[in-house]
Design a protein around this nucleic acid. Structure first.
Lengths: 147, 147
DNA sequence: ATTTCACGTAATAAATAAAGTTACATGAAA
DNA sequence: TTTCATGTAACTTTATTTATTACGTGAAAT
């Protein structure tokens, strides 16, 4: 199953942008995410439309964060990316005529909806600022002698 | 994203088999599941290896349930099918060197693990017998005049 | 016996969707 | 006016699931 890693990708990009003050180009982001600059532009375009980042052309251009890191949650980013399907498993037919299949779907849907609600709730409780702080801790731990 | 609907499929098949006393052929199952008999045999083969169903060749052959419907849970079936990946979204790289990406992964993994645990817990609480009963209710509701 | 039926399985093809790539237009700064 | 960087369309690649074809095995009916 090929999974959608765009949320992971944009988070990675956003944190790098938060670390660096000046704009990062699509090529730079593509390099640290091991992907292609066009893919970066395509994906970051969703965030631009949502006002989370801005892009500028020409010399010293690139991508910058415009939103407040404490206000952007993972859930918002998930929505901005078009709320892609969360699950890789699911019903064979969405609206079956067969009563047997309707029972099966009802049972599975109930479980999936609960799990998705939990996931989105967790996503809504994590902000970019928290991730940036977590990164700062990890970074400090790699330089234990700095006292 | 192409989702794995095998769990849905085998549940559908198992309930049809529970309704009917005699064995159902792969062609019959394929017909009601709108798929191919070879796909049915391939998927049901996992359940046969797990001792949930048996198959017989020749005239009047086909698939039968051997397990107790009250003992088979959706979680067991999920395991029998090889515990396929639950989520369609995930990390870009599983073990990144980049500290930024490690922070991102840690946050996402935590949420995913909680949601998966909830889903599997729900799955473990639903038995084939419960689904069969749910179907019986739906069936009765389509024949309200029967008294 | 032998014909029919149905599963078992390998090998291959088709379908699907994300990701990657190419190409070129737009616009800003040096 | 040259260089740099984004914006986007179109196309290709890649990975994976599902579907299909083909043939083998074995059980039951005639």
């Amino acid at each position: 199953m090929k999974i959608d890693s765009r949320l992971s990708s944009v988070l990675h990009a956003l944190l790098h942008m938060a670390e660096r003050g000046s704009p990062l180009t699509s090529d730079e982001l593509a390099c640290c995410m091991r992907t292609n600059p066009v893919v970066v532009r395509r994906t970051m375009g969703f965030l631009r439309k949502a006002g989370i980042v801005s892009s500028s052309k020409g010399h010293a251009g690139g991508w910058s964060i415009t939103a407040d890191l404490t206000q952007v949650t993972l859930r918002q980013l998930h929505e901005v990316l078009g709320e892609p399907a969360v699950f890789a498993i699911g019903n064979r037919h969405e609206r079956p005529e067969c009563l047997v299949e309707q029972s099966v779907n009802a049972a599975l849907d109930g479980a999936f909806q609960e799990a998705e609600a939990l996931l989105l709730d967790r996503f809504s409780q994590i902000t970019l600022a928290q991730l940036a702080e977590d990164f700062a801790c990890r970074f400090d731990q790699t330089r234990p002698k700095k006292d």
